[in-house]
Design a protein around this nucleic acid. Structure first.
Lengths: 385, 385
DNA sequence: ACGGTTTCGTGCGTTGACGGATCGAAAGAG
DNA sequence: CTCTTTCGATCCGTCAACGCACGAAACCGT
């Protein structure tokens, strides 16, 4: 069953398959392509030849020569070339907007971070983001952008493009940021949950590269999950999968903004960490504190405990979908090994032994840039459709 | 990306795609095939012509004629023909073995149910199952079986084929039933978790036909889940996804066979229902009672409460994967609307509103035959590889 | 009753992708 | 320096896919 969007005819399917492969892997030899696609080397050669003639790919030098690299003639590496228009990405957080531009393959050219209260006024935040992107465009001499992907820390309905409740950005609920930003930028804008984008980034360029099925957890001001199944991001039947921040914890009655009590987000979040730090470290200014700079035993224990709380929720979810990895991103994921260790110990304690044994738990390789990177990758991919 | 197992070359890919489509859908017109595959009608015609010449498909009469059926020439329906060897299935339960034979398309020819204590002695149960299948074969004049799929109510490691712990069948843990049954039957045997098979059955012939993403819950002596994502069963990175029976419930300390306390299975299962019924209905013999025959208010309330307990666990899982449907199977799923209503009310209460709104919750259309039917379907599919 | 419309099925010529075979090129191994 | 191994390029026979045109089989309106 060809799930690919047959743009045109099926005759070019193999060539597009090959192009997708060299695009996603970032360089393969003809033999590897023949192996991966199952078509003959001669067919691969002709397809690659056409891609090169069309300027969509280039042939680079063989990477490893010299004794010990195996006998036989070394293979040349085929690489995709950035021939199309640049793309852009936006990452809206609780109190920042992070915008970036990239070439048509999604390789970042530059980015700029603006600190504002994004939640206070959605329209103003979007104006500011559009202005920041304009400035970045001029800085890099870019006139036209073909595609923009924009991450929102909340559920996005895939059919309507509307921001659903509950989300960190309560003033955004019911808005259609794709339309509004599309007007401002004059380019097609796709809105996506930020955890899904983080999963995308780690899948292509991070800790998820060697996993077919994994969970990406964005643990920041809220907690969301991005799911990768079979090597592809999965967003559910209506696009709002991954809403794990409002799982109810036993023995916890704190009121959540979603109206329920005892949600995971009320216990584990950047805000709650800062609140606790204010008690344990009264001399610190915690309002803009980078959690990864902490290295004392007390905060390590605090972060470890936060990780254990997350891990308890993740354990049940892992029993359901049996992932190959869990990748923790967001500010809490970047805070250090203490939190990751907490997740590990809790998952191993509460999940089925066989499930836990097959599970790698790690921090996001791309750190807090995972969402932005994934958005650029997704924008580059979407620009070619 | 061609995920299909390229058996041979890619030149026949479209024809095999078409064959898979008419196989899984059970009859499509040429135009529908052209629409679904994206290739032209003339190419479909030639591929279909070759399938018919090869005896793998037949052309049946147009299904709906007469006024009101839309104008234009009615389309003929292309159906796959059972040309290969028959297949078989086995469904091991807590105290029964259910075996069946089907033609090469998975259409059931006959089945037989044997009541024994399957858990007591795994080897004996397999001997008995093999004997029952042999009897069924002779009854239908079948000499050779090409493929057998066998359902087990417990986790099955996809790589090793071993039964993992915890499972209802504790004496089976560590065994490799695929090998043992393969010796007895002289045919390739594939072992699969029974909830996965139930999901397969409902996906092809039941309530999952019109859903791409759903959860099938087998609620019987244990509780397991089968996951369908993107129209395909998903079994996790090591094949043991769906183990939701040992999710810990708050405020519940009953000891479970898995060693933990407060597992879902200890509260909701056929055994616990029977135990409760023994108290409320002292005159009944509950040991072999069919739960679907109950129609009094007391047992309805009891089943409703059981449904609510299941629903509470499912709510968190739905927030993660945002499925389009939940299908409840097993003996408890077939017990009536009271339990289903309990699941509904609990999911709507504890899941995110947007997630719950996009969710259809229903009983398995195939009832307790879902697992057996799915096993036959899967066996037919596997026989063609 | 009879065209008009719509949709389905099919035959045909052209295109070009696939697969197999062959040969040369570029490296390492002995 | 020769042998082996692997990769790349080329040629050619085959055949799937496309587009188009035409006929077939139904419904619909007058």
């Amino acid at each position: 069953m060809s799930e690919t969007t047959n743009h045109g005819s099926v005759r070019d399917r193999s060539r597009e398959d090959i192009y997708d492969l060299i695009l996603e892997s970032g360089g393969m030899t003809r033999s590897e392509l023949a192996e991966a696609t199952g078509i003959s080397r001669s067919a691969v050669t002709s397809a690659v030849g056409r891609l090169i003639r069309e300027g969509r790919a280039v042939e680079s030098e063989p990477d490893s020569k010299g004794p010990g690299s195996g006998s036989g003639r070394p293979a040349n590496r085929i690489t995709a070339v950035a021939s199309g228009l640049p793309v852009a990405a936006m990452d809206f957080g609780h109190n920042h907007v992070w915008v970036a531009v990239a070439d048509s393959l999604g390789n970042a050219l530059g980015d700029s971070l603006t600190v504002i209260d994004v939640d206070y006024n959605a329209t103003e935040a979007m104006d500011l983001a559009a202005a920041a992107l304009d400035a970045l465009r001029h800085e890099h001499g870019i006139t036209t952008i073909s595609n923009v992907v924009c991450g929102i820390p909340g559920p996005v309905d895939a059919r309507t493009g509307l921001v659903k409740s509950p989300t960190i950005l309560s003033s955004w609920v019911g808005l259609s940021p794709a339309q509004e930003l599309g007007h401002r930028l004059g380019a097609p804008v796709h809105i996506e949950n930020d955890a899904v984008l983080g999963a995308h980034g780690e899948l292509r360029l991070g800790a998820g590269r060697h996993h077919k099925d994994f969970l990406y957890i964005k643990a920041s001001h809220g907690i969301g999950a991005g799911i990768v199944i079979g090597g592809k991001p999965f967003t559910g039947s209506t696009g709002i999968a991954g809403e794990i921040g409002h799982t109810q914890l036993p023995n916890n009655t704190e009121l959540c903004r979603c109206g329920k009590r005892g949600c995971l987000e009320t216990v584990v979040s950047v805000q709650s960490m800062r609140k606790q730090l204010q008690h344990t470290h009264p001399h610190l200014d915690v309002t803009q504190l980078d959690l990864s700079t902490l290295d004392d035993a007390i905060s390590a224990r605090m972060l470890n405990e936060a990780g254990r709380t997350i891990g308890r929720v993740l354990a049940d979810l892992c029993n359901l979908i049996n992932p190959g990895a869990i990748i923790i991103g967001g500010e809490l994921g970047a805070s250090g090994e203490a939190l990751i260790d907490g997740v590990r110990s809790s998952v191993h304690r509460y999940a089925q032994p066989a499930t836990a044994a097959a599970l790698e738990i790690s921090a996001a390789e791309l750190g807090t840039r995972a969402e932005l990177t994934g958005a650029l990758q997704l924008a580059a991919w979407r620009a070619q459709r």
